[in-house]
Design a binder for these strands. Structure first.
Length: 275
DNA sequence: AACCGCGCCTGTTCGC
DNA sequence: TGCGAACAGGCGCGGT
């Protein structure tokens, strides 16, 4: 899962751990993940000093002082372990001169590690064409109206489209739609501007609250430090099939949160309060 | 063009 | 209790 709030949390952990440090050694143990890791990665990392980090959607970029940036995507099950002993599925290990250690672990191998010239970061194949940051100025109700115009796809599918907006995944799409009172099945092109303004605000608020909580921890995901984020306790609909929604008085008014499948993904919503 | 469904991958959970 | 089936989902791709 890691979505924008989890990636932001991980990135802050890495920043505190690596920025300003010099890399003494890098060990690539397994390169064949979703997008093969370049075999030159250890050579580029070794001896470089980490200048800082940037997030773009669900991607992280680690900038080095040698002109290279490392693009990092956690996929479904990716984790960055800080100062832990070597774990199973630890594909890459980075050791800093001051004795620090970072392990990239990705059992399901849906993640990515790649090299890109720092000046060319945004032209990387996986970043080019990505939509605006949902927490940036460009993302608004008016923007959503422009991209939703004429589209028959359900609004939930549109929110998941990284070309529309960057960083929203399955959990936060359901949560933001619940908060906005919009049904996930509604055709994107048939939602009024005021309601899309509500949705844009709901997306922002949901993500900001999740970041403040350190993201959501699923069973296969922890923060770099090993601590758990706690936003999963704030989920209103995700994973709550059958439970009463907080805006409903209960049966017979509301039969609880419903789970459906859209584009092969689980969606959770309240049929009574989301229209 | 837009949209949907599939395949990738493995650890965990579910149901018989 | 034990086993295989189903599930989790970010992403690119191919088919309609």
């Amino acid at each position: 899962m890691p979505e924008l709030p989890e990636v932001e949390t991980v990135m802050r952990g890495l920043d505190g751990h690596l920025t300003g440090r010099r890399i003494a050694r890098a060990i690539l143990r397994r390169a064949d993940i979703r997008w093969p890791i370049p075999l030159t990665l250890p050579r580029v990392l070794t001896g470089a000093t980490v200048l800082g980090f940037r997030r773009r959607g669900k991607f992280m970029l680690m900038r080095l002082d040698n002109g290279w940036s490392v693009l990092i995507h956690l996929g479904m099950s990716g984790r960055m372990l800080l100062d832990k002993p070597e774990a199973a599925h630890e594909h890459l290990t980075i050791e800093t001169e001051d004795g620090g250690r970072v392990g990239f672990v990705d059992p399901r191998r849906f993640g990515a590690l790649d090299l890109v010239r720092t000046v060319d970061e945004d032209n990387h194949k996986l970043l080019a064409g990505m939509g605006p940051e949902p927490l940036g100025n460009e993302f608004s109700g008016a923007y959503l109206a422009a991209v939703c115009k004429g589209r028959s796809a359900p609004i939930k599918a549109v929110l998941l489209d990284q070309r529309v907006v960057a960083g929203i995944g399955n959990i936060y799409a359901s949560e933001a739609l619940f908060r906005s009172g919009i049904s996930p099945t509604r055709a994107a092109g048939k939602i009024s501007l005021p309601r899309l303004e509500t949705l844009a605000a709901a997306v922002r608020a949901t993500l900001i609250e999740a970041i403040a909580a350190g993201g959501s921890s699923l069973r296969d995901y922890v923060q770099p430090s090993g601590e758990l984020g706690y936003f999963q306790h704030a989920w209103k609909v995700y994973g709550r099939t059958g439970e009463p929604c907080e805006r409903c008085p209960g049966p017979p008014e509301c039969n609880g949160i419903r789970q459906i499948t859209q584009s092969g993904r689980s969606t959770f919503y309240c049929p009574k309060t989301q229209r």
